[in-house]
Amino acid sequence: MGKQYEALSERWIEFIAEQKIFFVGTATTDSRVNVSPKGMDSFRVLNNNRVIWLNVTGSGNESSAHVQRDPRMTIMFCSFEGPPLILRLYGAARVIHKNDHDWEELFAHFNPLPGARQIFDLSINLVQTSCGMATPYYAYTGDRDLLSDWARRKGDDGLKQYWEEKNQSSIDNIPTHIVENNVRS
């Protein structure tokens, strides 16, 4: 049976720190629902009701488009080893781009990742746990470096061009504002 909490406990914060993958869900009232797996060293807990995650360049930019129109976001962690657990964080998110005043402060929480394009700042209003007893065991064998290698090869100019070509809008044509908010003058 699922349980609900107003904030993250120290136990849940420790659980999050051990995870290698998390899933992000966003949608607007009139868009497709997007669920995206995230990895790398890209997630930080700032306090019991606030988390941030560093978003790197990828094939789409759905979360950014959605959150700029409707701030709802759900983040899910799932135990693939040890005791079963599903942990969901519900709240209102905002997108921070490189040109935003708090980019530097929040970016300082992360080791730099090639292709970094946004930070998502989630104010948590509900934490929910559920059993996860049907979730299979999986063994973590390592990170994939493919995306980081790709971003390094692209370089800053190549990433900007990729954003212009591939990341300007969602699959439902919702603008992401990535180019104008990430290119420093």
Rank of each mutant, 00 (worst) to 15 (best):
G2D: 13
A7M: 09
E10A: 10
W12E: 15
W12R: 11
F15L: 06
E18K: 14
K20H: 14
T29M: 07
N34C: 13
P37S: 13
D41T: 10
R44C: 10
V45L: 13
L46W: 03
L46I: 15
N48Y: 07
R50Y: 05
I52R: 09
L54H: 07
V56G: 04
V56S: 03
N61C: 03
E62T: 03
E62F: 08
H66V: 05
H66W: 07
E81F: 12
R88P: 09
Y90D: 08
D100A: 04
D102G: 06
W103I: 04
E104A: 14
A108K: 04
A108V: 02
H109E: 12
F110D: 04
F110N: 08
N111M: 12
P112I: 06
P114W: 10
A116S: 12
L122I: 05
N125A: 08
N125D: 13
L126E: 13
V127P: 11
T129F: 02
T129P: 00
T135E: 11
Y137M: 15
A139S: 15
G142M: 01
D143W: 08
R144D: 13
L146G: 07
S148D: 14
A151I: 03
G158D: 04
K160R: 04
S170I: 00
H177L: 03
I178Y: 01
